[in-house]
């Protein structure tokens, strides 16, 4: 499930791209430098980084850390809460198919672990009729209306972000029951990774759901996040 690399100037970008394109694995690159610029330039070798108005000075990188303004968290990502398994940017018209997370400072006492579940494991737990429902029933992801699963002969994708789905749209009881069952399957099939300082993980945003466990509010936990679309996709 984890493919390991060591950071160097001569790292094999072609192989990393292939790993992300073809396998259902998470890439882990050790000893990555703590630099927004280096992170952004590194990703440009394998994909097109997505700029966002909320990002750092280097517009492709976002600091995932506890951040408050006037006593309130600036976003759920900027809180210390458990973040349930989700797709990043599920509410965007074009969802980036990859995510990079660089650990600058892990949370203390093994808290704040990253959690993942892969689409293949999820599909194994679903009946044919459930898969049919999830590929046909559409849901509102803020302003985007689409199904949770997209499956054709060539590709499979999952889009899921319950916080967005439930916070911007009123769900009825039957819809909540569907999502409750899905959440249960996601949690039962999830695994966690305790990132170490200097580890960069790359994974498919359309083939994995990711989340995190809670951590102490005064933790210095800092991950640098970059979203990108693979060059060949």
């Amino acid at each position: 499930m984890l493919i390991n690399y060591n950071y160097s100037e001569e790292i094999d970008f072609v192989q990393i791209s292939k790993d992300l394109e073809t396998s259902n694995s998470i890439i882990c690159i050790e000893n990555f430098p703590e630099s927004d610029e280096k992170l952004s330039n590194f990703i440009k070798n394998i994909g097109i980084p997505i700029e966002d108005f909320k990002n750092n000075k280097i517009k492709t990188v976002f600091d995932v850390k506890v951040m408050k303004q006037k006593g309130y968290f600036k976003s759920v990502a900027n809180s210390n809460y458990t973040f349930p398994l989700h797709t990043d940017c599920a509410d965007y018209e074009k969802v980036p198919n990859c995510i990079g997370l660089l650990c600058v400072q892990p949370a203390e006492n093994n808290e704040g672990a990253n959690t993942f579940v892969d689409l293949e494991s999820i599909l194994k737990q679903l009946s044919e009729s459930e898969i049919e429902l999830l590929t046909t029933k559409k849901w509102w992801f803020r302003k985007i209306y689409k199904p949770i699963l997209e499956i054709d002969n060539q590709t499979k994708s999952i889009f899921y972000d319950r916080i967005t789905m439930e916070s911007f749209t009123k769900l009825d009881t039957s819809e909540k029951m569907i999502l409750n069952k899905l959440d249960q399957i996601f949690i039962q099939n999830s695994f966690k990774i305790n990132l170490k300082k200097g580890e960069l993980i790359l994974f498919r945003n359309d083939l994995f759901l990711h989340g995190r466990e809670s951590f102490e509010i005064d933790s210095n936990r800092l991950l640098k996040r970059i979203r990108f679309t693979l060059i060949n996709s």
């Binding site: 309130y72 759920v76 809460y81 349930p84 439930e166 916070s167």
Partner: peptide
């Protein structure tokens, strides 16, 4: 002034406008 986010059925988090 705030948007409420449903983190789970027991927790709603208020996040202020920007």
């Amino acid at each position: 002034r705030f948007k409420e986010f449903i983190l789970d059925e027991n927790q709603i988090e208020k996040i202020p406008c920007e």
